[in-house]
Amino acid sequence: MSIEIQSRGYAHPTNLVSTEWVATNLNNSNVIIVESNEDPLLYPSSHIPGAYEVDWTLDLNDQVMRDYLNRTGFEALMSRLGATQDSHIVFYGDKNNWWACYAFWVFQLFGHTNCSIMDGGRIKWMNEQRPLVMDLPNNPTSNYTAPERDDTTERAFRDEVLAHVKKQGQLVDVRSPEEFTGARTHMPDYPNEGALRSGHIPGAKSVPWATAINPANGTFKTAAELREIYENQKGISPEEPTIAYCRIGERSSHTWFVLKYLLGHPNVKNYDGSWTEWGNSVGLPIEKP
């Protein structure tokens, strides 16, 4: 583990590794590096030596339903990566690790807990002039066996969110302030992906995902800084269940990672239906300031 990351006071520091740590573990046969991006051209153009690509649309999503891959699909994916139950999977990617955190979250649905995020993501690795290659890894495949996907501990569905609202449970809306207030239904400069109503889920606290990031280098803020933001300023209690959401669940997986692994909140779920489901559903309550 990186001493620098350990010094930041995170609850689960082994789930975050530095670029330096990755550089020194490139030949560690127990470590499998996975790049997950929004831009599908990035990985093929260059990647960390030995890194595999996990594509959020092709590898993680069901190709017909709005859902994730099933046990068979996950077993095939992990076998392609040459993973065993003991493998340490390290995710990194573009967009401040949005998709890396999203992939990390999906892996938790199948109970592969030995996972980390590379702090700062792809851009930090590039800015540090670390090696990048085009060669694809050719490690032997494996025969990974996975349990059935467990959607009960890390994933929230619509009805659960509605029940949570009625109990005045904690919700974190990680979208932009304009989306939260209802001034727009989509990210600034992003298209409207079809939400018919604007606003936020009643009772949600607005904490845009980027609040957790040092803008200079894309690394996560220290635990003390994060605690000040989420717990002191926004009043998110570690003891209470929390549900994070955004537009389709990718930005909120980033905040889910922050709350669960960096701050150690034990009961945090990601609502992947997010605003594209909530803002389109008939009869669901919406709050506007």
Binding site: E38, T57, D189, Y190, P191, E193
Partner: peptide, 13 residues
């Protein structure tokens, strides 16, 4: 050029 390979956000840009 990019087909379905791009997210909605990237397509818009």
């Amino acid at each position: 050029l990019f087909g379905k390979e791009l997210s909605m956000g990237k397509s818009m840009g």
